[in-house]
Computed example of a mutant assay.
Amino acid sequence: MHVSSSFAFPSLASIALIFLASASQAAPVKVFILCGQSNMEGKGAIKHLEQLLADPATAKTYQHLRDDNGWVERDDVFIQYNDDRGRGKLGLGYGTPTNRFGPELEFGHVVGNALDEKVLIIKCAWGGRALAVRFRPPSSGKGDYTQRNRQTKEIVPLPEETYGEAYRDTIRIVQKTLANIDQIVPDYNQKEGYQLSGFVFFQGFNDVIDQKKVDEYGQNLENLVRDVRKDLDAPKLPFVIGELGQQGVEPEKRHAEKHFAFRKMQEDVSKLPEFKGNVAFVKTSPYIVSDGESFDGGYHYYGRADTFFHIGHAFGEAMLKLNQP
């Protein structure tokens, strides 16, 4: 049998390169859920971000967010924000109001730079939502909180449907988005599908101001992790808990004890044996700049772009660690 000298079997190296190329092109989309209240909605001022980019002392840190054509939109990271607050390529414009941005911006750059796969961020955030009430997970059962009736001025129980409203909306939005993922992620490969790869929860202000809600926060947070994993059918879904760090590393004396205790409660959940290696607590208080210009009065981390940028970066780094094999 004669074999033509013009034919050459592919080398093992060539076969490996072909396999790796096809695998990278057909890998499942990595899906991350960012959930919480107003700080997750995003209050970082774009006006401040422009100032940071104009200052030679800080411009280098943020230069990847803008190029000669304007604000960068990534071709490999996509976002769905609630039902009606926007979808598309990750860039600016996914905060509330739209002249703000949240942790999603730098989070998306961190995970997008590190991962070969396309990334989809599903952001579910609403201001003024307590974990004890609207984010209340099913395993916590019905709460027993009250409100004042506007007409009679009497104190009456909260309507039963109020409990868990934001939790249910989060699960619904995630499921609806994933059912229509091909409308958000270009060239979505149905065969390869997607992989739920992480959940970030950044919330707490509406609980810390009410001692009754503080008292049950730890148990509610535990239940949130378990219930989200159950309802999304992702038993080991990596979970990042963002510290309620509004008061900074050293809170005001009159608030210090309560805030330190609350932060410890959040961190303690991440240390439970069942959550070892798949739940992380991320400090946000170190990124507070309390002696600089404020873009949101005394609220929402002063609305500073540098603070929200660094918080998003920290969330992204923590999530990548949880996703390591």
Rank of each mutant, 00 (worst) to 15 (best):
S5W: 05
F9Y: 06
P10C: 05
L12K: 13
A13H: 08
S14N: 07
A16Y: 10
A16C: 09
A16M: 09
F19R: 12
S22R: 12
Q25F: 09
A27C: 12
A27E: 14
A27I: 10
I33P: 00
E41W: 07
G44Q: 14
A45I: 09
P56H: 15
R66M: 08
R66V: 08
R66I: 09
D67S: 01
D68S: 04
D75C: 03
V77L: 03
I79Q: 01
Q80Y: 01
D83H: 11
R85M: 11
K89Y: 01
K89N: 04
K89D: 02
K89T: 01
L90W: 05
L90S: 05
G91L: 03
L92N: 03
G93L: 02
Y94W: 04
G95H: 07
T98F: 05
N99G: 05
R100S: 08
F101K: 06
E104T: 03
G108W: 05
A114Q: 14
D116F: 13
D116Y: 12
I121F: 00
I121D: 00
K123A: 00
A125V: 09
A125R: 07
R129L: 07
A130I: 02
A130T: 04
L131C: 03
R134G: 07
Y145G: 08
T152E: 10
K153S: 13
E154G: 11
V156T: 11
P159S: 13
E160T: 10
Y163K: 05
A166P: 02
Y167Q: 03
T170R: 03
T177Q: 00
N180S: 11
Q183C: 04
I184D: 01
I184P: 01
D187V: 04
Q190L: 12
Q190C: 06
K191I: 11
Y194F: 00
Q195D: 00
G198C: 00
N206F: 08
N206D: 05
I209Y: 06
D210G: 03
Q211H: 12
Q211D: 15
K213I: 04
V214S: 10
V214P: 02
Y217M: 03
Y217L: 01
Q219M: 13
N220S: 10
E222H: 14
V225M: 02
R226C: 01
V228Q: 00
K236A: 14
P238V: 05
E243C: 10
L244G: 02
Q246H: 09
Q246R: 08
V249H: 07
E250C: 05
E252H: 04
K253I: 06
A256M: 03
A261C: 11
F262G: 01
K264E: 15
M265N: 14
Q266G: 04
K271F: 11
K271Y: 13
L272E: 15
G277K: 09
V279K: 11
V279T: 11
S285A: 15
S285E: 08
I288A: 13
V289L: 15
G292D: 15
E293R: 15
F295G: 15
F295S: 13
D296I: 08
G298V: 06
Y301M: 15
Y302E: 13
G303P: 14
A305C: 11
G312S: 12
E317D: 12
M319P: 01
Q324R: 15
P325S: 14
